[in-house]
């Protein structure tokens, strides 16, 4: 069975294209505004979207996403807002595949199978849960499978070869490679072992590899795309949102510059 994500992955593979995935925290700076930003990200050429549902204790995130999450929570975002927002976005013509990005507790608290069913119903393609390694992910995986949703697992620079193989096999859709030892956020340079690690992972799986964490500039995005199937940019987009003063043109311009540089790596 095909969904928007598998469709995208097939097409990009066939046409040797790269994937630009944009991350945005739902509810930051307000719910309405974040929904507008999400639409703007698609309009600017993003191929795939990660919509973050904020969690009070985001272990894998650096200051930018932490702050955005905290603000969104303080403004009263509800887990159900995610489904409402998705429904609205699809109704208004959002076409790109969307993955929920959240920590496990909100999902666990809402109910694993209930989350899966509602994600499917609102036209979401799956989820990325950074504190859910495959060992703990069996329940969510099973529920997702029922609804043809993807649970994307992460591989890190510290992951052993055997484990990489296992994670790549269990990961649904693509494999998310965490570029660095650390949390999300803008970094000056790419980690020096990125090339060699990606080579190893490439040799172990045929699934597309998207690289995230610490990628913030068009130049970095292009470099990373040359060794992978695409990039995820999050904190840098949130920074653009913070600086935008409620206007979309700055966000669009920044996103377009990232999209262009990804295209230039094709």
């Amino acid at each position: 069975m095909k969904n928007r994500l598998t469709q995208l992955l097939l097409e990009t593979k066939k046409n040797r294209k790269k994937i630009f995935c944009a991350y945005m925290t739902l509810g930051y700076p307000t719910l309405t505004h974040s929904i507008q930003v999400i639409k703007a990200l698609e309009d600017s050429g993003a191929d795939l979207l990660e919509i973050g549902f904020p969690f009070s204790d985001p272990l894998a995130d650096g200051p930018t996403i932490q702050r955005a999450s905290q603000e969104a929570i303080e403004k009263g975002i509800q887990f159900q807002d995610f489904f409402k927002a998705m429904r609205l976005l699809r109704k208004n013509g959002l076409k790109v595949p969307v993955l929920l990005f959240s920590y496990f507790n909100p999902i666990f608290h809402y109910g694993v199978s209930r989350t899966a069913r509602e994600l499917f119903e609102v036209g979401c393609e799956g989820a990325i849960v950074p504190d859910l390694p495959p060992e703990e992910g069996r329940d969510l995986e099973a529920s997702f499978r029922k609804f043809n949703l993807s649970l994307v697992y992460l591989v890190a620079p510290t992951t052993s070869h055997d484990r990489m193989k296992m994670i790549a096999q269990r990961s649904s859709g693509f494999v998310y490679y965490v570029s660095l030892r650390g949390v999300t956020g803008v970094r000056r340079a790419l980690p020096h072992d990125l090339t060699s690690n990606l080579k190893v992972l490439r040799s172990l799986t045929n699934k597309p590899i998207l690289v995230g964490f610490g990628i913030s500039t068009p130049k970095q995005a292009r470099q990373v795309c040359r060794m992978s199937d695409g990039v995820v940019v999050g904190s840098a987009i949130l920074n653009a949102v913070r600086k935008s003063n409620g206007r979309m043109d700055g966000i669009k311009k920044f996103t377009r510059s990232l999209v262009d540089s990804v295209r230039s790596a094709e």
Partner: peptide, 20 residues
């Protein structure tokens, strides 16, 4: 062996820490 006391415990951590 998985670090569970009945229903509780486990290892809900970012992948980077799995090796550690």
């Amino acid at each position: 062996a998985q670090g569970y006391f009945g229903d509780y415990g486990g290892q809900f951590v970012p992948e980077t820490l799995s090796k550690a």
